[in-house]
């Protein structure tokens, strides 16, 4: 592998890794508060990509209930991206209100919540298919405005070309990460979130409105999931209603690698898996899909608490 190709792969790895990181943060936020894994997160990721597509005023394909429909207006990509994220966040809140909260109120254990979230994921994927069909959707080339399709960081003699999309993805992910870090570490809401994560009962006794915070967490989780969906859709295409399911599974590998419930862990895990996938030699690129899961399996056997996780002692 020559050096330019190597750096291109690193750039790819960082771009996809940073999306893994923000996507996995969606799992981590909910896990740290409720101790559950929300399998519907992958479906919310898909929804985010479709919402952005809708807000850009683009027409749907020939299948489904909304065939050939489009909004009467089209928004520029950056605004559609944010709106898509907000809409995905709203869906996250809806899922929490309609399914997870009633389960919690009845004292259902975490396994039931897991099954419930799987059911929701199946429903969402098929609602998408019912509404807009199973075909792939691509954002138009003009989504990034007047930016050139790639940037050469090398010299004309030894080019080092990085796709603009990768730079945009990395930049947006970093902005989201910085925003979330600020929110969690430096605001009152963040302090309350951390308190609820530490001990929900004590936090509510101290006057923190846990119910509202849980809703807020689901909103944040859906928001970052939706943004991640749009970013991945921008880089490849939105490959259909099942777009987010494989990605959702990889997100699980990311959070376990980093340590369940750890926010820096999710970031490190995302970057490690993104880079590891990018560095798979192109001859065996078909095995790329297995890299994340192989890492996950080995990590679970060697260090189940992950890179940044805390060891939990089982009490009698």
């Amino acid at each position: 592998m020559n050096i330019a190709l190597f750096f291109q792969q690193i750039a790819n790895g960082l771009a996809i890794g940073s999306v893994y990181a923000i996507f996995a943060l969606g799992y981590t936020l909910i896990f740290s508060i409720l101790g559950i894994i929300n399998f519907a997160h992958g479906a919310v990721f898909t929804l985010g990509a479709y919402f952005t597509y809708t807000f850009m005023g683009l027409a749907f394909g020939f299948n489904g209930l909304l065939a050939q429909q489009k909004l009467p207006f089209g928004l520029p990509f950056p605004i559609a991206l944010v709106l898509g994220g907000l809409a995905a966040g709203a869906i996250g809140v809806l899922i929490e209100r309609a399914f997870f909260r009633p389960l919690r109120m009845r004292g259902g254990d975490s396994l039931l919540t897991l099954v419930s979230s799987l059911g929701i994921a199946v429903a969402i994927v098929n609602i998408i298919q019912y509404l807009v069909g199973a075909e792939a959707y691509a954002y138009p080339m003009s989504a990034l405005g007047g930016l050139p399709p790639s940037v050469n960081f090398g010299t004309p003699e030894s080019p080092l070309i990085v796709r603009t999309v990768q730079i945009v993805i990395f930049a947006v992910s970093m902005i989201i990460l910085a925003g979330l870090t600020y929110l969690i570490n430096a605001t009152r809401t963040g302090k309350a979130l951390r308190a609820v994560a530490e001990d929900a009962t004590t936090a509510s006794l101290l006057g923190i409105n846990t119910d509202r915070l849980i809703m807020f967490t689901f909103f944040l989780s859906g928001f970052v999931g939706g943004i991640a969906g749009t970013l991945v859709g921008l880089s490849v295409t939105v490959t259909g209603p099942y777009f987010g399911i494989a990605f959702g599974l990889k997100g699980l590998a990311v959070i376990v690698l980093g340590g369940l419930g750890s926010i820096p862990g999710a970031v490190i895990g995302g970057l490690v898996i993104g880079l590891a996938e990018a560095l798979v030699p192109s001859q065996s690129s078909a095995l790329k899909e297995a890299v994340a899961f192989a890492i996950l399996f080995v990590i679970l056997l060697v260090r189940p608490q992950g890179i940044m996780g805390r060891v939990q002692v089982q009490k009698v």
Partner: peptide
Amino acid sequence: GFLIALGT
């Protein structure tokens, strides 16, 4: 999917 979610 909804039946699974409601079943739980």
